[in-house]
């Protein structure tokens, strides 16, 4: 059975993914420890989203293995697979809220599917999850199209948290947000990370988010991953990493992080 305290929470070994002649992952290894916030970065087209889809089992990798809590996701029986899926939460880049359901119904969707609960209880749980991500209970009655970008990201997070996962996958959680909303999202994530003792895997392009929240970073270069702590990564001699972490945008984010005493 699943042991949510298994360490490492995620272990990817020798992952190969290719689309026709184009090789995206060429023996990628990745390990995510319990209770860390692991940031995945890489240039456009280096296969960050493909990596996430492979881990989530949405894409069958050409070769290699993906283990979550020590279970090989490819080899699980259907019932174990279901309990694995219920043990993590995912937010997609554009929120992927079901557009025909209200925000509250979106949050209740997995609860309704897996537990038979009274409407009143479901409403209260929706309230709780919305409050937890900093939305008002009133926002639950709105449809996704009535929400701003930042609220969509928060609502998606509320839905991801509905089944109380210990493991959270976030695909570009702050992309498309203004700096103030993005910073607020970073703070929310850090807060929930400590309060709920989450393990977080996050794809991000946002250097501020990276410096504010991540305890370790994995960089995808040439189909492989270089993982290190942030200070270690800053000293890495690889030219792409140097350029990424020492460009003008990175320097500003670094200074900001140093000032706040994070990172």
């Amino acid at each position: 059975m699943l042991d949510p305290n298994f360490n490492p929470a995620i272990r990817v070994r020798g992952l190969h993914n290719r689309f026709g002649a184009q090789v995206v992952h060429d023996g990628l290894d990745m390990e995510v420890q319990q209770h860390e916030i692991f940031g995945v970065v890489g240039g456009s087209g280096t296969g960050k989203s493909v990596l996430l889809r492979s881990i989530l089992g949405l894409r069958h990798p050409d070769s290699g293995s993906v283990e979550i809590y020590g279970q090989d996701v490819e080899k699980l029986a259907a019932t174990d697979r279901l309990s694995l899926v219920q043990s993590y939460g995912v937010t997609f880049q554009n929120g992927a809220l079901i557009s025909s359901l209200t925000v509250a119904q979106n949050v209740q969707l997995p609860l309704r599917e897996y537990f038979s609960l009274a409407e009143k209880t479901l409403d209260e749980l929706a309230d709780m999850n919305l409050l937890m991500v900093g939305l008002a209970p009133d926002d639950g009655a709105k449809f996704p199209s009535q929400l701003s970008g930042g609220m969509i990201k928060r609502a998606a997070l509320a839905r991801a948290l509905a089944l109380e996962p210990k493991l959270l996958f976030l695909d570009e959680p702050t992309s498309g947000l203004d700096p103030i909303s993005a910073t607020a999202f970073d703070e929310l994530l850090l807060y929930l990370h400590t309060q709920l003792r989450l393990t977080v895997v996050m794809i991000t392009h946002d250097l501020d988010t990276l410096f504010q929240t991540c305890s370790r970073v994995g960089v995808i270069i040439d189909g492989r991953m270089i993982s290190d702590t942030l200070p270690g990564m800053l000293k890495n001699p690889n030219p792409w990493i140097q350029e990424y972490f020492h460009g003008p945008r990175a320097r500003a984010a670094e200074m900001e992080a140093a000032k706040d005493g994070h990172g």
Partner: peptide, 11 residues
């Protein structure tokens, strides 16, 4: 009717 579509796949 096409021009009236707003917001969602259900619409």
């Amino acid at each position: 009717r096409g021009m009236q579509v707003r917001d969602s796949a259900r619409e």
